[in-house]
Design a protein around this nucleic acid. Structure first.
Length: 788
RNA sequence: GCUGGAGUGGUGAAAUUGGCAAACACACUAGCUUCAGGAGCUAGCGCCGCAAGGCUUGAGGGUUCAAAUCCCUCCUCCAGCACCA
C-alpha cells in the first residue's frame, strides 16, 4: 500500500486536537504532588504574520524547537509549547500600506492563513493558549506595563537627536538601525531633534551585563549583547577654559596619555558652545559647521569619517591639567554628542583618529611619556567613571498599527498616565492609517481620540498620539501565554511560578540586541516590581542557523523565498520537517535545495513499506533459539541501543542531522532482517516520533496501540548492550595503516601488541626489523615505530 | 578597524574531541526490473595510477609515535559592531 501522507497527516492532526495531547494543565501544582509532572516551557519566537504566509525559515525554527519539546515530553515532562502572532507593528503595517488594505482587516486574514499553515507543520502546539499582540485583551497589558514604567520613573520624555526613517516616517530605537539603515525597510536613517518617550534601559546596563554569566545561551548572542552594552571604564577630566568659569569635561579610557593631549574636541551639538558664543571670534563659521553636521545622515558621518572635518573655536583655549599648557579647542563631528561627555581630549600620539585629524589641520603632536595609570586621575582632579554604549530605548512610534501610548497631557498637571481602570486605550478604527509625514502619528488627526479629561484635575487635556514600539509587544508575550485570558492582572503569580522562566527558547540570532535584550530588561523590571521571583526570562536559549537558497539568504527582493505549502502538498509535513533538519547542524543552518528532498522522501517511504511488510517476532529474541536470525537480532539490538543513545544525545545538542542519519543506519540494518522483534520496531518508532510525528503515530497505531506514541516513554538504552565484544584493531607502521584485524574488546596492551606483531602482513613489512617503539591505544590501534 | 564563527569529495555534510578522513544522504555511472515515470532494486563512486602503491581536510611551518582536530604565520568567506575616545 502506498504511503498516503495526506490522509494520514490529516487524520492525526484532527486526532491530536480532539484528544488534547499537547495541552498541559496550566494550573497543575508545581511538582512532586499527586500525578503532576515536571513542567517544561518550550518556547519558540512567535512569528510576525506577513501576508505572504509562513516562511520556510519559520518552519525550520519551529520544527527544530518542536523536536526538542517532543523528546522532553517523552522524557516525562509536562511540555508547554505555545504559539501566537506578533501582529502589531511596522512590519505588518508596511505590508498593509503596500497592498492598500487596512491593517485590522489584513490582520484577520493573515491570522487565519498563519494558523492554518501552523496547524499543518506537525508541531505539538498548545492551541488553547494562542494569543495575538493586536487584540485589546493583550495590548491592554502592554499599556499597563507602560503606565507602571512611567509611575516607577522608568519611562520619561526626552529631547534628543533620534533616528528617523524617512520611508517609514517614524523614529526608531538604536537597536532598529543596522548599518545606518532602517531595520525594516532599509532606507537611510537620518537624525532628528525630537522629544520622545524613552524607557531607561541604561539603568539596567550593568545588571544586563552581569547576568549574562548565569544563563545558558548561544555564545554568539551573549557576545553580541556584551558588545552592544559596551561597558568601558575611564575617567572624566576637566580642562579649564582660561579667564572663564567654564571647563571642558572630557571622557577618556586612557587618562595615562594626558601629557600627550595637544587639543580638545567638542561634538557639534555640545551645550558649552552656546555659553561661549560671545568669545568665539569665528562664530559664523562655527554656526555654519554645526548646521551642516546636523543635516548629515549617520551614513554620511561614517563614510565621511575617513576624511575628517572640523573647525577651531577661535578665541577659546583650554588648559591641559597635566602640562598646564594652553591648547586649542575644536569642534568636529567625529566626536559624538551621545557618548561620554560629548567632548574629548585629543592625543594624536596614541589615537589614530586624533592623529589623522591633527595631520589634516596641522595640529601639534606630543610624544610625552605615559603617566602612572593609578595616580594621575586624582592628581588632576578627575574622577573614575564607567560608560556604556547602550542607549535608552526609544519607545514612541509615529505610526498607526500599535498600542496607543496610554498617556495624557494636561497644561496644568503635565503628563499623566491613563488610570488602570480605563485601560485599554483602544486603537481607534480610522480610515486613513497612512503615516502623515508631519512627524506625528495618524492618530493626531482624530479630534475625538485626542480630546480627553485630565485624570488628575479633570480639566481639558489631550492624549498622546504616538503608539509604542512593536518590540514592547514581544518583550513580554511569554509571560502572557501562561495566563492569556486573565483580565484582572497581567498574569497570575501562581501560574508564573509553575511555568516560568522559560526552560528552552529557540529563535533567530538576529534578535540578539533587539527582542532578546528587551525581554531580559522587562523581566528584570518585573522582578524589581515584585511580580516574579526570577530575573532572567530564558534559562536556555539557542539560536538556529540561517536557511540559504542558491547561495544567498532568502529574501523577497532576490525572489528566492521558499513557501512551505507547496512542499507539504507534494511530500507531506514529515518529509519537509526531516529534510529541513537533515540539511546541516540546526545551529548552523543550511542550503535549501529541491533535489535533496528525494532522500528523505525515500527514507520515509521505506519506513512505511517496512512497517507494512515485516514479520514481527515476539519480543525476546533469545527464546527463538540459536539460529542465524538470532545473531541478526542480537546485532540489531546492539545497534538499536547505540542509536537510542546517540539520537538522545544528538537531540539534546540540537544535532538533528546526525540523529537522522543514525535513524537511516538503523533502518538499513532492519531491512536486512527477515523478521524483526516487536520491541525493536517499537523503539524505532519512538525515536522516530519527534521527527516524523504523523508517520510514527500511524505505524504505532498499526501495531495495535490505542494511545499516542508521543506520550510514550523515551526508550532507555542498556549501556551493556552498546558494548561490542570485539573491535577492529588497526595496525599502523609509522602512523600508516598497514593491517586490520578483529580483536577482543577486553584485550590488554600486551595482548594487542602480540596480535599486531604476529599479523602476517605486518611480519612481512617488518622483515625482521626490530621495532623502535610500540604505541598501544586500548580498543583502537597499535602503532609500530621503526627506523626509516 | 574590532568581536565572533567557518574553510573537508561533483554537492549537503560526518569524524567518539589528538587515534582508520569522507559516516549518512544528494548527484552521477553501470546493470536489473518496469503498463516508460522525476518509480523500485543491485553495484560503483576523494584524487593520481593498469597495478603494487602514493597523495589528500584553504596555504606554509611547528609540536607528536600519531594532527581536519593543538601551536605559530598568512589567505579567503560569513555574521555582528563600528569615528564609543
Amino acid at each position: 500500500m502506498e504511503y498516503n501522507f495526506k490522509a494520514i497527516e490529516k487524520k492525526w492532526i484532527a486526532n491530536w486536537l480532539k484528544n488534547k495531547i499537547y495541552e498541559p494543565d496550566l494550573d497543575a501544582p508545581r511538582h512532586g504532588r499527586g500525578k503532576s509532572k515536571k513542567p517544561f516551557y518550550n518556547l519558540m519566537m512567535f512569528p510576525y504574520p506577513s501576508a505572504e504566509g509562513l516562511h520556510v525559515g519559520n518552519m525550520y525554527a519551529f520544527t527544530g524547537a518542536d523536536i526538542y519539546g517532543r523528546k522532553k515530553r517523552m522524557e516525562g515532562f509536562d511540555v508547554f509549547e505555545p504559539i501566537g502572532l506578533d501582529g502589531f507593528g511596522i512590519h505588518s503595517e508596511n505590508y498593509a500600506l503596500k497592498i492598500n488594505k487596512h491593517p485590522k482587516k489584513l490582520a484577520k486574514e493573515t491570522e487565519k492563513r498563519f494558523y492554518g499553515q501552523l496547524n499543518l507543520i506537525g508541531n505539538g502546539f498548545a492551541w488553547n493558549e494562542k494569543l495575538e499582540t493586536y487584540n485589546p485583551e493583550y495590548y491592554k497589558w502592554t499599556q499597563w506595563i507602560f503606565v507602571q514604567m512611567f509611575k516607577k520613573g522608568l519611562a520619561a520624555r526626552k529631547k534628543a537627536a533620534v533616528n528617523w526613517c524617512p520611508q517609514c516616517q517614524t523614529v526608531l530605537a538604536d537597536e532598529q538601525v543596522a548599518g545606518g539603515e532602517c531595520e525594516r525597510c532599509s532606507s537611510k536613517v537620518i537624525k532628528k531633534e525630537l522629544e520622545q518617550w524613552f524607557f531607561k534601559i541604561t539603568d539596567y546596563a550593568q545588571r544586563l551585563l552581569d547576568d549574562l554569566e548565569k544563563i545558558d545561551w548561544s555564545g554568539r548572542v551573549k557576545i553580541a549583547q556584551k558588545n552592544w552594552i559596551g561597558r568601558s571604564e575611564g575617567a572624566i577630566i576637566k580642562f579649564q577654559i582660561p579667564n572663564s568659569k567654564f571647563q571642558i569635561e572630557v571622557f577618556t579610557t586612557r587618562p595615562d596619555t594626558l601629557f600627550g593631549a595637544t587639543y580638545c574636541v567638542l561634538a557639534p551639538e555640545h551645550s558649552l558652545i552656546k555659553n561661549l558664543e560671545s568669545r568665539i571670534l569665528n562664530l559664523e563659521e562655527i554656526k555654519k559647521y554645526i548646521k551642516n553636521a546636523k543635516e548629515k545622515t549617520d551614513e554620511e558621518r561614517i563614510v565621511g569619517g575617513k576624511d575628517k572635518t572640523g573647525v577651531e573655536l577661535k578665541g577659546i583655549k583650554a588648559i591641559n591639567p597635566a602640562t598646564k599648557e594652553e591648547i586649542p579647542v575644536w569642534i568636529a563631528d567625529y566626536v559624538l554628542a551621545g557618548y561620554g561627555t560629548g567632548a574629548i581630549m585629543a592625543v594624536p600620539a596614541h589615537d589614530e583618529r586624533d592623529m589623522e585629524f591633527a595631520k589634516k589641520f596641522n595640529l601639534a603632536v606630543s610624544d610625552a611619556p605615559l603617566a602612572d595609570r593609578k595616580e594621575i586621575i586624582k592628581k588632576v582632579g578627575g574622577k573614575k567613571i564607567v560608560n556604556y554604549h547602550l542607549r535608552d530605548w526609544l519607545i514612541s512610534r509615529q505610526r498607526y498599527w500599535g498600542p496607543p501610548i496610554p498617556m495624557i497631557f494636561c497644561e496644568k498637571c503635565g503628563w499623566q498616565p491613563v488610570p488602570e481602570k480605563d485601560l485599554p486605550v483602544l486603537l481607534p478604527n480610522v480610515k486613513d492609517f497612512r503615516p502623515t509625514g508631519s512627524g506625528k502619528s495618524p492618530l493626531a488627526t482624530i479630534e475625538k481620540f485626542i480630546k480627553t479629561k485630565c485624570p488628575k484635575c479633570k480639566g481639558e487635556a489631550r492624549r498622546e498620539t504616538d503608539v509604542s514600539d512593536t518590540f514592547l509587544d514581544s518583550a513580554w508575550y511569554f509571560f502572557r501565554y501562561v495566563d492569556h485570558k486573565n483580565q484582572k492582572e497581567i498574569f497570575s503569580s501562581k501560574r508564573a511560578e509553575r511555568w516560568l522562566p522559560v526552560d528552552m527558547y529557540i529563535g533567530g540570532a538576529e534578535h540578539a540586541v533587539l527582542h532578546l535584550l528587551y525581554a531580559r530588561f522587562l523581566t528584570k523590571v518585573f522582578y524589581d516590581w515584585g511580580l516574579i521571583d526570577f530575573n532572567e526570562p530564558f534559562k536556555k536559549f539557542r539560536a538556529h542557523g540561517l536557511l540559504i537558497k542558491d547561495g544567498a539568504k532568502m529574501s523577497k527582493s532576490r525572489g528566492n523565498v521558499v513557501n512551505p505549502d507547496q512542499y507539504i502538498q507534494k511530500f507531506g509535513a514529515d518529509v519537509l520537517r526531516m529534510y529541513l533538519m537533515f540539511l546541516g547542524p540546526f545551529e548552523q543552518g543550511g542550503d535549501f535545495r529541491d533535489e535533496s528532498i528525494a532522500g528523505i522522501d525515500r527514507f520515509l517511504n521505506r519506513i512505511w513499506k517496512f512497517g507494512g511488510k515485516i514479520k514481527i517476532t515476539p519480543n525476546n529474541p533469545a527464546s527463538a533459539g540459536l539460529t542465524g536470525q538470532t545473531n541478526q537480532n542480537a546485532k540489531l539490538e546492539k545497534l538499536l541501543n547505540k542509536s537510542i543513545k546517540k539520537i538522545g544525545e544528538d537531540i539534546e545538542q540540537l544535532r538533528y542531522n546526525t540523529a537522522i542519519s543514525q535513524l537511516m543506519i538503523l533502518l538499513n540494518e532492519m531491512e536486512k532482517s527477515e523478521a524483526v522483534p516487536k520491541n525493536i520496531f517499537e523503539s524505532f518508532l519512538k525515536i522516530l516520533a519527534p521527527f516524523a510525528s504523523h508517520l510514527a503515530e500511524e505505524l504505532w497505531e498499526k501495531l495495535g496501540h490505542k494511545t499516542s506514541v508521543h506520550l510514550e516513554k523515551w526508550p532507555e538504552y542498556d549501556s551493556e548492550k552498546t558494548r561490542e565484544k570485539t573491535f577492529e584493531l588497526v595496525i599502523q607502521i609509522n602512523g600508516k595503516v598497514r593491517a586490520k584485524m578483529e580483536a577482543p574488546a577486553e584485550a590488554g596492551e600486551v595482548e594487542l601488541q602480540e596480535l599486531a606483531l604476529n599479523h602476517p602482513l605486518i611480519k612481512e613489512k617488518l622483515a625482521g626489523q626490530p621495532p623502535k617503539k610500540i604505541i598501544v591505544v586500548l580498543g583502537r590501534l597499535v602503532n609500530i615505530v621503526i627506523q626509516t
